[in-house]
């Protein structure tokens, strides 16, 4: 950050941030796409992609070419402008939260004072995209998916924020860098309840199984993206993967000490390596439970949030506040 701040003029900084963001988004989509298929394969006692490249490493490239060359089918009675807009609404904002995430003590776009609020605010735009997609498709399954997604995301944002607020109270800052620096002991030790609540909400916020009610393949065929094909579908996919990346980053920053870790010898960028390792640990967790658990029912999902997570996170917040103020 200091390097960026002191030496480069503002314009170069912005260009670098945008390029860096794009690299993270697409790089993450490639890594995650490969990782998910390979892991899913091994969870199911098969090999996953093996044909293209060494152990299927180029599979995602081939898939990308296929998706790009596919025709964009727009249903006859769909709302065309909105139908095309939805994937863009979903994909465009995912760059922004990346700007405030402290990848290491040097690599960070901006250190906003309200970093956490910024990330959560931008992340919630995704719900709008899902709703627009469901509405514009003019398909009942899509509508169902969209309704479910909205109800689910709005509900789960509350315990998610409350569990993170407990840490904000402890550190007295919304800045992500400030939170990383405040961790002499990782907050997973001091705030285990908040961590578990955040973990559950993280799965629900990214619409991943077992909380993938918005897609619910066996009930709603493919939920809100039933009618999407080709590149518009892959924009949704990339947005989903980037959202997973962002929530994992937040988890790393808040609970696993961000960049902290044993210094690696002879290497300047220890921080980012530890950071990405922790992030992909969370990603592995997300993939792992997706291929292990069945889907919950919608009312069960809502009950979990309103009856358990919300009260527990409130109590947790209260206790934290009292302890901090004493």
């Amino acid at each position: 950050m200091q390097t960026l701040n002191s030496y480069a003029p503002e314009i170069i900084r912005i260009v670098m941030a945008v390029v860096g963001g794009a690299v993270v988004v697409f790089g993450n989509a490639l890594v995650m796409g490969y990782m998910e298929r390979k892991l899913a394969g091994h969870f199911q006692r098969r090999t996953g992609p093996m044909e293209v490249g060494f152990h299927g490493l180029l599979q995602l490239v081939i898939d990308g070419i296929k998706l790009m060359s596919k025709q964009l089918v727009i249903p006859a009675k769909a709302d065309k402008p909105l139908f095309m807009l939805a994937p863009i609404i979903s994909f465009a904002p995912v760059f922004l939260p990346l700007l405030v995430i402290p990848f290491s003590d040097r690599i960070q776009g901006f250190d906003l004072d309200v970093g956490l609020l910024f990330v959560l605010a931008i992340a919630s735009i995704n719900v709008l995209a899902v709703l627009v997609a469901g509405w514009a498709s003019n398909n009942k399954y899509s509508m169902f998916g969209a309704f479910r997604a909205v109800a689910q995301n709005v509900a789960y944002e509350i315990p998610m924020l409350l569990s993170l607020l407990a840490i904000v109270f402890m550190t007295n800052t919304f800045s992500l860098r400030g939170i990383v620096e405040a961790q002499t002991v990782w907050f997973i030790v001091l705030q285990p309840v908040a961590f578990i609540i955040y973990l559950i909400c993280m799965v629900a916020e990214t619409n991943r199984a077992p909380f993938d009610l918005a897609e619910a393949e066996s009930e709603l065929t493919a939920g809100f993206h039933t009618e999407y094909s080709g590149m518009s579908f892959s924009l949704f996919m990339m947005a989903e993967y980037t959202n997973m990346f962002i929530v994992s980053c937040i988890a790393t920053v808040f609970f696993l000490g961000g960049t902290s870790g044993i210094p690696l010898p002879y290497f300047e960028y220890t921080g980012i390596i530890w950071f990405l390792l922790k992030v992909y640990l969370f990603m592995f967790f997300l993939v792992w439970i997706r291929w292990t658990y069945p889907r919950t029912r919608f009312d069960q999902l809502m009950n979990l949030c309103w009856k358990y997570l919300l009260p527990i996170s409130l109590v947790n917040l209260l206790i934290t506040v009292v302890v901090v103020k004493l």
């Binding site: 199911q44 199984a209 077992p210 393949e217 066996s218 997706r290 292990t292 069945p294 889907r295």
Partner: peptide, 8 residues
């Protein structure tokens, strides 16, 4: 179980 969303 696939119907219930468990893929594995």
């Amino acid at each position: 179980l696939l119907d219930l969303g468990a893929f594995t």
